[in-house]
Amino acid sequence: MRIFVVGLGAAGRRHLANARALGHDAEGGRLGDAEQFGPDAIVVASPTGVHLDALRWAADRGVHAFVEKPIAASSAGVGEALAVAEQAGITVAVGYNLRFHPALEAIADAVRGGRIGRLLSVRAEVGQYLPDWHPGEDYRTSYAAQASLGGGALLTLSHELDSVRWIAGEVDAVQGCAVHVSSLELDVDDVAELVCRHAGGAVSSIHLDFLDRSYNRRSRWVGEEGTIAWEWGGPARLLPADETLSAATPDALEGTYLAALQDFVEAAAIEVCEAVAAALPEV
């Protein structure tokens, strides 16, 4: 498959290397360079604020699209772009690679398998001090720090929103706030706190921040018959039995990026095969 990576920042360079590692003919650059390359698929790794432009470009040309999370800076125009993509028969995926993390996969299997009974509540949180993200770079110039580029804790740290919805189910109602509370020089929110009510009845609380001086990512899943606790890099444990559902995985992150891209490529290949089959004359 010919894959063009739009945007060659840190995320884009990783996607380009992974696409090549998976054996694909891959190049990268600006969206304007993609036409000449003639891709079967694009990976959108540009700032969040321009994700939708790239998705529209792909949908209009019948090119599969893997869009880094989140899919866009707001919901405006997303539905229309996805409708065009569906009409074109292309695969669109969003890069929530933590769905492929062994611990979260184990948690999802345990919750769906009834290991803790009916899910009642979830607490998920992530925090990391924004100036520490890319040592040697001025955090104020990063997309995460700028509203015009689709930054802010709520959008940039949205993995937890996705994983909770993925495991706990659709959200029926949500309340919360996303605000700037620190002395960091940003024009976006640096902390967000959400409370969600899920269709199955569970309640979740989700915390996201650019402020924690020590990297923090953890979640706790409380059911009628047990609890699952997980902290980044450590095991996922079923309590009170203290059963290990997933062993400690301190080096699992890189593999999730590769797995997410591979999953997208396989889905896109199915779409291509079905399109080719549909175009074949009946014998």
Rank of each mutant, 00 (worst) to 15 (best):
Ala248Val: 12
Ile270Thr: 13
Ala247Cys: 11
Lys69Ser: 13
Tyr139Glu: 07
Glu137Ala: 14
Gly62Val: 09
Ala275Phe: 10
Ala241Arg: 15
His15Lys: 04
Glu105Trp: 09
Ser219Glu: 04
Gly113Trp: 12
Tyr143Glu: 04
Ser214Asp: 15
Leu130Gly: 08
Leu98Gln: 09
Glu254Thr: 00
Arg165Phe: 12
His207Met: 06
Gly152Val: 02
Arg13Ile: 08
Arg14Asp: 14
Leu98Cys: 04
Ala278Asn: 11
Gln175Met: 15
Ala34Phe: 02
Ser74Met: 05
Ile206Trp: 06
Leu82Tyr: 11
Ala110Thr: 03
Leu238Cys: 03
Asn97Met: 14
Ser142Arg: 10
Ala41Gln: 05
Asp187Tyr: 07
Ala124Gly: 04
Gly7Met: 08
Ala144His: 13
Asp53Thr: 12
Ala268Met: 07
Arg115Ala: 15
His101Tyr: 11
Arg56Ala: 03
Arg20Gln: 12
Gly77Pro: 14
Asp60Ile: 09
Ala26Ile: 00
Glu68Ile: 02
Ser214Pro: 01
Phe100Pro: 05
Ala229Phe: 09
Ala34Val: 06
Cys177Ala: 14
Val283Gly: 11
Ala72His: 02
Val84Lys: 06
Val111Phe: 07
Ala247Ser: 10
Arg112Gln: 13
Val171Phe: 11
Glu231Tyr: 10
Arg56His: 05
His134Leu: 15
Leu239Pro: 02
Leu52Asp: 01
Gly117Asn: 00
Ala58Asn: 00
Leu186Phe: 08
Thr91Met: 08
Leu239Glu: 15
Asp251Ser: 11
Asp189Glu: 02
Met1Ile: 03
Glu231Ile: 06
Ala17Phe: 11
Arg56Ser: 00
Arg61Thr: 00
Pro135Ser: 10
Gly113His: 10
Leu52Arg: 04
Arg140Thr: 15
Gly151Leu: 07
Ala173Tyr: 12
Gly77Ser: 07
Ala247Leu: 09
Phe4Ala: 11
Ala259Gln: 11
Asp60Trp: 10
Gly95Arg: 01
Ala267Asp: 09
Trp221Phe: 05
Ala17Arg: 03
Leu211Arg: 13
Thr227Ala: 13
Arg220Gln: 04
Val188Asp: 07
Leu52Cys: 06
Gly12Met: 02
Gly127Trp: 03
Arg220Val: 04
Pro281Asp: 15
Ile270Val: 12
Asp40Ile: 06
Ala229Trp: 10
Thr48Ile: 07
Val50Ala: 05
Gln87Glu: 14
Ala45Tyr: 07
Gln36Tyr: 15
Val179Trp: 00
Gly7Asp: 01
Thr256Pro: 05
Thr91Asp: 03
Gly150Tyr: 06
Tyr257Ser: 05
Leu130Val: 11
Gly89Leu: 04
Leu245Thr: 06
Val122Trp: 03
Leu261Ile: 05
Ala19Tyr: 03
Gly152Met: 02
